[in-house]
Design a protein around this nucleic acid. Structure first.
Length: 510
RNA sequence: GGCGGGGUAGCUCAGUGGCAGAGCAAGCGGCUCAUAAUCGCUGUGUCGCGGGUUCGAAUCCCGCCCCCGCUACCA
């Protein structure tokens, strides 16, 4: 995949929206995947950002008595502060109001407009318009034929807009996906898209004249670019389209556009067709995850289930937060969130599982060897084999974005290690001075297992991994570790001075 | 209405023809290095309902009930 770079994107967010755990779900998943690829030694480009144009922004700014740019400047940081708290290590953050993006969008529009196939044409957009809202509605949205907000009659309005000839791309899109079905995952989403395309595609409008907070069309500045050509183009802007062709050739096409299923159509139909029309290769893969549900309902502001990530981060901490959502929910399916399940998951897997394992091993190293990793003649434990097998499954599952199963594979190691300690009973061996070699072997095996666990969990729980790494006292930086080499048995040097620090994951009361 | 997903143990879910599974929770026992932790043992569930195909169905077919999402340009 990829030219030289593993390129993964999140959607870009509306500054006006309030971040909730559904947005964060996408961000965490993207970051987990990106960090995993970095751990494998790949050059990674992880992009996120904000979508800052449009009538809604313009109106919100007006209502606040501000210029639109000043408005988004003060709204946008609310997103970055969430990503910072979640340890989202993006490589670039794009704002669609940046000059580089204006350049790229206009260039893209030009490329499509001038492609000789008349793919952009002037047409009539007809719709039901509420003057008070300054918005178009579909018939379904109306209440008794009137505006749902103002209760006033809507007008049938026709507006001259430029249109993109999506209808001309039906066959090419089907051929594109026929070549390689994995271009849309998971399968159920792919099937939806294919049936949608087969049903015939309608052209869509790409410009507006009823507001001006947007990017002007290069050939007709009376029109501003309307949502799709502006927003979706961010993915190539950040890769260097229109500004750095050398870089663009290395970075594009994106390996993965990670999105929610609500914007599948735009990413899997509109976007590839737009790129084809502009002479740019479509992305390698669009991966649509599911929605979080709260109490069995899709999360939303209206039913009071729009939970802000900070509400959970304050209680659980960032590592537990990241782990919970990735482990608990089958990636690709909808998943239910509940406070109780989050507490259970934290206590079972993190506090009692990994955290307690580290605690008991480091405590014994401290008591029996003054914290120094002992040299050992060797051990006949099956842990090296178990770890190698788990690491192999982890890699395989991360490759197919079975993120929860990948973590399960790592926790098989935790389970086996706890079991191993009970089988060997080092606390009993320690009472017999004649069995020092045996004690050394057991504790070396346990400590080496912790070292490899720290490496494997680093993409999902960077802080806990670093804390464990520090407790193990390993000199080489964790950031410098690379898979698969770093997971090979025997990397922990005898003589390493460990120290039992604070609990990695304190138990939580419900 | 149409399209899609789903209804399996208290909870979350896996399981697409061959004796009903996992994790968590719960109970009992062991151990005591550890964060009241850990290890072992314990699951008689109408696999939504009713038919059908089959030697055999949670798994395939038909019908029905219920839940969720989408249904086209405001992510």
């Amino acid at each position: 995949m990829g030219r030289d770079v593993f390129y993964i994107t999140t959607p870009i967010y509306y500054p006006n929206d309030v971040p909730h755990i559904g947005h964060a779900y996408n961000a965490v998943a993207t970051d987990f995947i990106a960090r995993y690829h970095r751990l494998r030694g790949e050059e990674v480009f992880h992009l996120t950002g904000t979508d800052e144009h449009g009538l809604k922004i313009q109106r919100a700014a007006e209502a606040a008595g501000m210029e639109p740019k000043a408005w988004v400047d003060q709204m946008e940081p609310r997103w970055r502060e969430v990503w910072a708290r979640l340890d989202i290590a993006y490589d670039d953050y794009i704002r669609t109001t940046e000059p580089r993006h204006v350049t790229a969008v206009q260039r893209m529009l030009r490329a499509v407009h001038d492609n000789g196939r008349d793919d952009i044409y002037l047409g009539l957009y007809e719709g039901l318009y509420c003057v008070s809202c300054e918005l178009y509605y579909t018939e379904d949205e109306l209440i008794d034929g009137k505006c749902p907000i103002h209760g006033r009659p809507v007008e049938h309005v026709r507006e001259e807009n430029y249109f993109f000839r999506l209808s001309a791309y039906t066959d090419r899109l089907l051929a594109w996906y026929g070549e390689d079905p994995s271009r849309i995952e998971p399968e159920t989403r792919r099937n939806e898209v294919l049936s949608l395309i087969r049903g015939g595609l309608q052209d869509f409008s790409i410009s507006r004249t009823n507001f001006d907070w947007g990017i002007p069309l290069p050939w007709d500045p009376n029109h501003v670019c309307y949502v799709w050509f502006d927003a979706l183009t961010n993915y190539i802007t950040a890769a260097g389209y229109g500004s750095d062709e050398g870089r663009f050739a290395r970075v594009w096409p994106a390996n993965i556009h990670l999105i929610g299923k609500d914007i599948l159509r735009q990413h899997a139909v509109y976007w590839p067709a737009m790129l084809m029309a502009g002479g740019v290769e479509p992305p390698r893969q669009v991966w649509a995850h599911g929605f979080l549900t709260v109490g069995g309902k899709k999360m939303s502001k209206s039913n009071a289930t729009g939970i802000h990530p900070f509400e959970l981060l304050d209680h659980f901490g960032v590592d537990s937060y990241r782990y919970y959502f990735m482990r608990e929910i089958q990636f690709g399916q909808d998943g239910s969130f509940s406070w109780e399940s989050m507490v259970d998951r934290h206590n079972a897997d993190l506090a009692n599982g990994l955290g307690n394992l580290a605690s008991r091993v480091l405590a014994m190293l401290g008591s029996y060897f003054d914290g120094v990793v002992p040299a050992t003649p060797g051990d006949d434990s099956d842990l090296p084999k178990v770890i190698e097998e788990s690491r192999r499954r982890y890699d395989e599952l991360m490759g197919t974005l079975a993120l929860g199963s990948a973590l399960t594979a790592v926790w098989d190691i935790v389970g086996r290690a706890n079991q191993y300690l009970v089988e060997r009973e080092p606390w009993k061996i320690a009472k017999d001075d004649g069995r020092r070699d045996e004690l050394a072997a057991v504790l070396y095996t346990a400590a080496e297992t912790l070292r490899i666990l720290a490496v494997l969990i680093s993409p999902i729980m960077p802080n806990a991994a670093a804390a464990l790494w520090t407790q193990l006292g390993i000199g080489e930086p964790l950031d410098a570790q690379r898979l698969p080499h770093a997971a090979r048995w025997g990397g922990l040097a005898p003589g390493t001075r460990t120290s039992k620090g604070d609990a990695l994951f304190p138990r939580l009361d419900s």
